[in-house]
């Protein structure tokens, strides 16, 4: 077990236990993750660093229930994510996970507020309640005045704020960010990191952020390094 994956003192929200992930390319087997262990307590802001192809996004996908491990278990909030059916997994994601993507992944045909509303369409909230949640999420990311704007009329930083608002609008258990500043300049990137930090510190959000930028990882409360499918507490030289 990698010691870096442990965090004693707080009860873990995320438990990755002996996870392996193998991809197949023709006859070739690619072992992306090998016997990986990780515990993330509730309320932590964890940065997951590593070079390209190290398996960071794969691990994030496994924790977020977007993919299934070849071996091992992934538990989030006590729920074994890897054993859920596709339908239950989708419902579980809608309830517990907020995603923030590197390229924002907003729907270009919807305004900022309608993009933020998307996860709420899966709830039983009324239109008025959905609107109230959307406005609250947009206020948290400071984009209330841009609510009616389409993504193409927003800057990269603003689009990522919309992405974050969409990620937090359902008040998920866990926020998973895949290179959230990777497509932004330093200034806009810093604003996004400020926002994530505020969400963690002021709103108690548990955040796992994949990044390859040391400047971004410095904002996290803990950083783990992934290299060749294994975690370590220190960067591999």
């Amino acid at each position: 077990m990698n010691e870096s994956g442990r965090n004693d003192g707080k009860s873990p929200l995320v438990e990755v236990d002996g996870v392996e992930k193998v991809f197949h390319r023709g006859a070739e087997e690619i072992h992306v993750l090998k016997d990986l262990h990780l515990q993330v307590p509730a309320g932590e802001f964890l940065a997951l660093m590593g070079p390209s192809g190290s398996g960071k996004s794969t691990l994030l996908n496994l924790i977020g229930g977007l993919d299934r491990p070849t071996k091992g278990t992934v538990r989030v909030g006590g729920e074994s994510v890897d054993t859920l059916s596709d339908r239950h997994l989708a419902a579980w994601r809608a309830r517990h996970i907020g995603f923030v993507f590197q390229l924002y992944n907003l729907l270009p045909v919807l305004t900022a507020e309608r993009n933020v509303e998307l996860p709420l369409l899966l709830t039983h909230l009324s239109k008025a309640e959905r609107n109230r949640h959307v406005q609250a999420a947009l206020a948290v990311v400071g984009l209330t005045p841009r609510a009616k704007h389409f993504p193409r009329t927003l800057s990269g930083g603003e689009q990522q704020r919309v992405g974050i608002a969409r990620g937090i609008v359902t008040d998920p258990t866990l926020l998973l960010c895949d290179e959230p500043t990777g497509d932004l300049d330093r200034k806009a990137g810093d604003e996004i990191l400020d926002l994530l930090q505020a969400l963690n510190r002021e709103h108690g959000k548990t955040i796992i952020m994949v990044t390859h930028d040391p400047h971004a990882s410095a904002r996290a409360s803990r950083t783990v390094y992934l290299n060749k499918g294994q975690l370590s507490a220190e960067p591999v030289k």
């Binding site: 977020g64 596709d86 339908r87 989708a90 809608a94 995603f99 993507f101 729907l107 998307l118």
Partner: peptide
């Protein structure tokens, strides 16, 4: 395709 992936990621089921 990517947008449909996003919808699924945020919780839309295959049926939806």
């Amino acid at each position: 395709t990517g947008e449909l992936g996003v919808l699924k990621a945020i919780g839309f089921t295959n049926g939806q």
